[in-house]
Design a protein around this nucleic acid. Structure first.
Length: 435
RNA sequence: GUGGGCGUAGCUCAGUCGGUUAGAGCGCCAGGUUGUGGCCCUGGAGGUCGCGGGUUCGAAUCCCGUCGCUCACCCCA
């Protein structure tokens, strides 16, 4: 073997494509049901597109180089800057809300580990130009429905939802200095892994007194109602809570209540979120985030795009694929070709080839032996090719203008006139395998 | 970035107190006398034992380095 694939990059063999095709078609199907339309941009962009506005984290993991024209370029690590540019170019003329989705291959130079490579495909779904909470509910519902499409249920995953603005206001109310709010949020984000002592220490470093620390930690346990009772006096807080209440009501109307919970601990790493934030988490086994997103009303303008409110989520193929494999939700590779023509003696080759041609023109997927092997071997080849039917043309069939059609799964065989066989097939469209 | 485990055929692995041409199962290819696949039988191809260096009469086996995979941490989609 001369060389293996680069670390963090995958070779996708035909059997791997069974899973990838399944994932992509599920993504496209759910996006379609929600009325999103697909777009794409270049995988290679000007380095500047990311260094200017993206977070330091992303910039530090860029795959970048200088091209032959001395341009500094980078493989895209995320889709949002491209979206901002593309929407920006046409924003004026597009009816709002703009509902777009894409399945970009994204690249990040980081240490590969389970569920995290240097390259992956990510479903990106975005709504641009809509402030109404209905958009937030649609977005989360779409993400939930993507997982449900693959057969995952409420036992398998949950959507955790919070509101960045709400948490920010509450923390400020408690007395976290406004410049330190993001810092405090990221401390709360460690709740899963760090003990309360550690958290309390970090929080007091931010200038909080003992009582303040206790109140901040208590926020994690509060329900929306608790938060309303305790902090609802602030108009900003009560407004944010009303919005979340409306959100959950909309989720409930969709019958998705069991999939979505309020969780004030959720904050998400990225700094640009301005409102609702959510993540989809695997419930069983070790917890893993499958998908994340939220509202980023100021980001498009910050990226040099139009000043439009927006929200979106990203959902990668790697973790989802592993999850589906673990749960046994990967479809079996069904028959790969429709018909395999078995030619009994060399004399039938012209007739067999002619039949192959006519079947293909009907839209059938057709295979045949290339070198005149024995009938037994041809049947084995048909089996290995995953043929649904074997169609035998021998001296008898050739003389009578018929064919012997064998169903490879049941073994049933029947004799039928060639013209009749072709007439059974309707238009090319309906001849393919219905996925 | 830090630390642990692991790299032998396409795959899953056996073989390591250092000793002749490195093995198995599965898979692949070819046959089992030119009209029927899944089973079975026979034969075959395929490995510089991750790579480089060292110790030794002799290294898949011991030592060092390196690369890769993997797990945990860090960080974060």
């Amino acid at each position: 073997m001369t060389a293996s694939s680069l670390p963090g990059f995958r070779d996708s063999y035909p059997e791997d494509f069974v899973l990838r095709r399944h994932i992509f078609s599920g993504w496209r199907e759910v996006a379609r049901r929600y009325g999103f339309v697909e777009y794409d941009g270049p995988p290679l962009e000007a380095l500047e597109l990311y260094t200017a506005k993206s977070g330091a984290e992303i910039v530090g993991q860029l795959y970048s180089f200088v091209d032959r024209g001395d341009r500094e370029v980078a493989l895209r690590p995320e889709m949002t800057p491209t979206l901002a540019r593309m929407v920006g170019a046409r924003a004026q003329g597009l009816p709002k809300p703009i509902k777009w989705f894409s399945i970009p291959q994204l690249f990040r130079y980081e240490r590969p580990q389970r569920g995290r490579l240097r390259e992956h495909f990510q479903l990106n779904v975005d709504i641009v130009g809509e402030t109404d909470v209905m958009a937030d509910a649609e977005l989360v519902a779409a993400a939930v429905d993507v997982l449900r499409y693959f057969g995952l249920g409420a036992d398998d995953f949950v959507a955790r939802v919070s509101d960045r603005r709400l948490i920010t206001l509450i923390l400020e109310e408690i007395g976290v200095p406004s410049g330190q709010v993001l810092e405090a949020i990221s401390v709360l984000d460690r709740s899963e892994r760090q003990g309360d002592e550690w958290l309390a220490e970090r929080l007091s470093e931010l200038g909080l007194g003992e009582a303040g620390v206790r109140r901040v930690l208590a926020v994690r346990e509060h329900s929306l109602e608790d938060l309303s009772n305790e902090y609802g006096g602030s108009s900003g807080v009560s407004e944010a809570i009303q919005r979340l209440d409306a959100f959950f009501e909309l989720i409930d109307h969709q019958g998705l209540a069991e999939f979505v919970v309020f969780d004030p601990r959720l904050v998400r790493g990225l700094a640009y979120y301005t409102g609702l934030v959510f993540e989809l988490w695997e419930k069983s086994g070790r917890l893993r985030a499958i998908c994340g997103g939220g509202r980023y009303d100021d980001l498009l303008a910050a990226l040099g795009g139009p000043d439009l409110p927006a929200l979106g989520f990203g959902l990668g193929d790697v973790v989802l694929g592993e999850l589906l494999k673990e749960k046994g939700l990967v479809p079996r590779d069904s028959a790969r070709i429709d018909d395999f023509i078995v030619c009994v003696t060399p004399e039938q080759r012209p007739a067999a080839i002619a039949l192959v041609r006519r079947l293909r023109e009907k839209g059938r997927s057709v295979g045949l032996d290339y070198r005149g092997r024995s009938v037994g071997r041809q049947f084995r080849a048909a089996d290995q090719a995953g043929a649904a039917r074997a169609i035998v043309i021998g001296p008898d069939e050739q003389r009578d203008g018929t064919a012997s059609v064998r169903d490879m799964s049941t073994g049933d065989e029947r004799s039928i006139g060639v013209e009749e066989l072709l007439a059974e097939l309707t238009a090319p469209d309906s001849a393919g395998n219905g996925a």
